[in-house]
Amino acid sequence: MNIKFHIQDLNFYFNNNKVLKLINFEIPANIILGIIGPSGSGKTTFLRALNRMNDLESGSRIEGQILFDGEDIYSSDYDVVALRKRVGMVFAMPVPLPMSIYDNIVYGPRLSGVNDKKRLDVLVEKSLTAAYLWDEVKDRLKTSAMRLSGGQQQRLCLARVLAMEPEVILLDEPCSGLDPISTAKIEDALTELKKEYTIILVTNNTKQAARVSDYTAFFLMGDLIEVGNTGQIFTSPNKTETNDYITGRFG
């Protein structure tokens, strides 16, 4: 199987607080990896390490390596901007930029120098369709994205990432503020999307991980406790902590 990310001896610090402790594992391509764990377990930090979004926080420091397609993304000459184009991200709270729906979607492509109107139109339709949003907004692409409902905004954010045509999509609790119907739509979209993308989904909702992911990783207090096939993790976990968490004893 094709490996997308190799994580080797990864330690991560915020101002000398160690928030990730000696993480080692591999993430294969074209799967959905669910990352679960109670809040404060380091799962979001881990996710944001994969596209170097943690760089934006002051006082962050990393040890060890993250190899993306065999290249160390934290080496000094690695092009972060190019990395973020290949590894897209959807945040917990939907954040449409204060511009039209259309301009939101083409924000990424335009940055990469795509200015051809026809090509952008095609990209907009394609990514909105893939995010299950096209039918709801196709008649009002020029209106402000701020007017969409929360669920629609989050699908817009997904579509915006898809328009960059990345290889990996990182999702940080994308459904935490959404209603069940919107959540279902996003989950449907993800299941479709894994054919073309590698998807890494951080979620507080263990059931969601069970529903959509192929592999599941369980983080606790900065440690990667266990990672494996979703079926195995949820039916016969190797560690008692995992079992306690998924059966709802804590978290």
Binding site: N51, M53, L56, V81, A82, R84, K85, G88, M89, F91, M93, V95, L97, P98, Y107, G108, L111, S112, C157, R160, V161, M164
Partner: peptide, 22 residues
């Protein structure tokens, strides 16, 4: 909002592009 910056960077914008466009 800080989130606008995050979104812009996560979509592959450079610092200057983020300043200019957002």
């Amino acid at each position: 909002p800080k989130s606008y910056r995050e979104v812009s960077f996560s979509l592959g914008a450079t610092s200057w592009q983020t300043v200019k466009k957002v």
